[in-house]
């Protein structure tokens, strides 16, 4: 069957099998920026935003989100124009191997959209589903706080 998504603002049409999960469909079609392979919704590396909400793409049937807006890490910034969250993760040293990073940043992105002034607890809660074996999370939480600051400074200008 065919599905259509608006991925990072661009309409894309894919041929899928009805049983396939979104992660596999997107990766097969070149979206290698989405990581993960636990397929149980337990690691968070495959997180994408569907209509702005973070979801583990390994547990969602591709057919079920036909027509939706999907945001991957590439949809929020790039090398030349990184999102403040991406910048903050780099500046604070929150990226080690970087395998969890896209998913983690997207979870943080969804949080900041809803809650621009999160407490530490809010941040920890938002990132709780994104496992990271490298950083021990402390610098990730610091990075989100730094991004909050960067976003505010950006707005003041």
């Amino acid at each position: 069957m065919k599905v259509k998504y608006i991925i990072n603002g661009k309409e894309e049409e894919y041929e899928i099998h009805p049983g396939e999960v979104l992660l596999d469909v997107l990766r097969r079609n070149g979206h290698s920026e989405i990581k993960g392979n636990c397929y149980l919704g337990t690691c968070g590396a495959c997180t994408v935003l569907i209509d702005g909400e973070p979801h583990t793409s390994c547990t969602i049937l591709a057919a079920k989100v036909n027509g939706k807006h999907i945001t991957t890490i590439k949809g929020i910034g790039d090398l030349n124009n990184p999102h403040p969250l991406q910048k903050a993760f780099v500046d604070v040293g929150a990226v080690q191997c970087g395998f969890c990073t896209p998913g983690t940043i997207l979870s943080a992105y969804a949080l900041l959209k809803k809650n621009p002034n999160p407490t530490d607890e809010d941040i920890k809660k938002a990132l709780d589903g994104n496992l990271c074996r490298c950083t021990g999370y402390v610098q990730q939480v610091e990075a989100v706080k730094f991004a909050v600051k960067l976003l505010k400074e950006g707005k003041d200008e």
Binding site: S32, E33, I34, K35, T72, I73, K74, G77, D78, L79, P82, Q86, K87, F89, V90, D91, G93, V95, Q96, C97, G98, F99, T101, P102, I105
Partner: peptide, 22 residues
């Protein structure tokens, strides 16, 4: 000095950098 990790921005913006990304 806290030199920024040289691969960090590429990783944080989802460039195809891992074995299975290619």
């Amino acid at each position: 000095k806290d030199t920024k990790k040289i691969d960090a921005l590429s990783l944080a913006t989802g460039q195809p950098m891992f074995v299975d990304d290619v």
